[in-house]
Simulated assay, not measured.
Amino acid sequence: MPRNPRSLRRLVARRLVIGVGQLFVLLVLVFVLSLLLPGDAADIQNNTLLGEEQRATARELIGLDVSPVTRFLDWIGGAVTGDFGTSYASGASVGSVIAGPFLTTGLLTLLTLVLLVPVAVGAGFAAGLRPGSGRDRWITTISIGFDSIPDFVLAVLLVAFLSVRLDLLPATFLGADLSTLLERPEYLVLPLTVTVARIAAPLVRLIRAGVIDVMEQPYIVQARRLEVGRISLLTRHIAPNALAPATQELGRTTGGLLSGVLIVEAVFAMPGIASELIGAIGNRDDPVILAIVSLTALFALLINIAIDIAGYRMNPRSARGLGG
């Protein structure tokens, strides 16, 4: 498949259309599920017995006196313009409620991605360039071990050993906020270790397999016979072909990245969107729930599109598997 801007634009447009449709369906499902929970925001906030008149007044003040369909469509209309509505629980704008938690989650996600690429690529190439060596066996064993341990189990084990037993790192974020994370980065060591290790593990093995496969290709064998420089051989011939499958796999594991980050936030009591979402569900705060779900899904969509573009750039033929 030729590499041309038109094919790339079609790929991005198709992914955007599909992603927007999936996002709308996801929001509908989340809203319907929230309606199935017992009680509503007025019941949660007024836990004493109220008469019918007082209950109707409370629902009207919150905005629950209209049909669920109207509330959902009004929220969608505002969200398109950047207005996510007003929190049922606090009365503040949803944007101000979720801004801090999203910054915390965004920081953890960004640092995970920054560390993930060099760790996965470095380990995968180190193992794949010398298959069967002691280094290869060690890297493969460690990656399989991390891949087989659930996020929360790995987090608990690290806390028990590094925090409780050795007292080297903080075990929890209780009492910490975003400014604390910037001033004391040791708070991020354990959460980043868990997220990077769990996501990098399958990528390392995939990159290793890709490197081994590319190294056996005739054009690589011929290039080595012609004594092509090692750096040029790695960067121009081996890396683009070996990394293309791993790039697509990274796109498919974006959901795993987000769920992993949310699990880590819950385990370490980080003040991110996981705790905010749990609180919003408990308060039946539909605008906050919908805002968190929509922004998280939108982030996953954009990350997937960026990864698709990267994979297309490295290997245009991979676009066939993406609908390009």
Rank of each mutant, 00 (worst) to 15 (best):
G85K: 15
G85H: 13
G85Y: 15
T86M: 15
S87L: 12
A89V: 09
S90R: 14
S90L: 14
G91N: 10
A92C: 14
S93N: 12
V94F: 11
V94E: 13
S96Y: 10
V97Q: 15
I98Y: 15
I98A: 05
I98W: 13
A99F: 15
A99V: 05
G100Y: 08
P101T: 12
P101D: 09
L103F: 09
T105W: 03
G106Y: 09
G106E: 06
L108V: 11
L108W: 07
L108M: 11
T109A: 11
T109H: 03
L110T: 14
L110S: 05
L111E: 01
T112K: 02
L113C: 01
L113V: 01
L115W: 01
L115C: 10
L115G: 04
L115E: 04
L115R: 02
L116A: 04
L116I: 09
L116T: 00
V117T: 00
V117R: 00
V117N: 00
P118L: 01
P118S: 02
V119K: 01
V119Y: 02
V119T: 10
A120D: 04
G122L: 00
G124V: 02
F125N: 04
F125D: 06
A126R: 02
A127Y: 00
A127W: 01
G128Q: 07
G128Y: 05
L129Y: 12
L129I: 03
R130M: 03
P131F: 15
G132P: 03
S133A: 07
G134T: 10
R135N: 01
R135S: 13
D136L: 00
R137V: 04
I139C: 05
T140W: 06
T141Q: 02
T141Y: 11
I142A: 14
S143Y: 07
S143N: 13
S143D: 08
I144P: 05
D147H: 15
S148D: 14
I149F: 13
I149N: 12
D151Q: 09
D151A: 07
F152N: 07
V153C: 13
V153L: 15
L154E: 04
L154Y: 14
L154A: 05
A155S: 11
L157Y: 13
L157C: 11
V159F: 10
A160E: 09
F161T: 14
F161H: 12
L162M: 13
V164D: 06
R165K: 13
L166D: 13
L166S: 06
L166G: 10
D167N: 13
D167L: 13
L168Y: 12
P170S: 06
P170E: 11
A171G: 14
A171T: 05
L174Q: 06
L174G: 09
L174V: 07
A176V: 01
A176E: 13
A176Q: 11
D177Y: 02
D177F: 04
L178W: 08
L178H: 12
S179P: 00
S179T: 11
S179D: 08
T180L: 04
L181G: 04
L181I: 14
L181Q: 05
E183W: 07
P185M: 08
L188A: 11
P191W: 09
